[in-house]
């Protein structure tokens, strides 16, 4: 699944300006996740038209990157996320970051790992459902 990452400085209005650009282009957001320090932020988002969104933001001068992340559908019950993450821990899969969102009313878990092959293998062996 394609994810966009945008570098933002940690100041009021910077996120709004990015989201406004996407809204004006009629791009629908599925997930927005922010990681920040006192000075910097990185906004990761998933949307319906990632290629178009990348071109628009780049054209607006933003430092923006597209990368491949794994997204798996998890159960809609308490403990479903914990169960999945426990599998990753047992398999010693190290995660760079992780966040969740709802896609068509189904909970989705998004994560990035440097070991893509191992992730595919775990998903296959444990019968996890990719989005």
């Amino acid at each position: 699944m394609k994810q966009l990452s945008i570098f933002l400085q940690n100041e009021s209005g910077t996120l709004t300006s990015v989201l406004d650009i996407l809204a004006d282009a009629g791009i629908q957001l599925y997930a927005v996740s922010i990681a920040d320090t006192s000075d910097y932020g990185i906004c990761r988002l998933i949307c319906d038209k990632p290629d178009e969104a990348l071109a628009i933001l780049r054209n607006a001068g933003h430092a923006v990157s597209q990368s491949d992340v794994r997204a798996i559908i998890i159960g809609d019950t308490p403990g479903a996320a914990a169960e999945t993450i426990r599998i990753f821990a047992k398999e010693h899969l190290s995660l760079a970051y992780l966040y969740t969102f709802l896609y068509e009313n189904k909970p989705v878990l998004v994560f990035r790992t440097d070991d893509k092959e191992k992730a595919s293998d775990i998903i296959l062996r444990h019968g996890l459902k990719s989005l």
């Binding site: 780049r58 933003h62 990157s65 990368s67 760079a96």
Partner: peptide, 14 residues
């Protein structure tokens, strides 16, 4: 300012 091209590859962390 950082040059936007620094994000041309797959950059998704700070």
């Amino acid at each position: 300012e950082i040059r936007p091209e620094q994000f041309d590859g797959e950059v998704d962390t700070l």
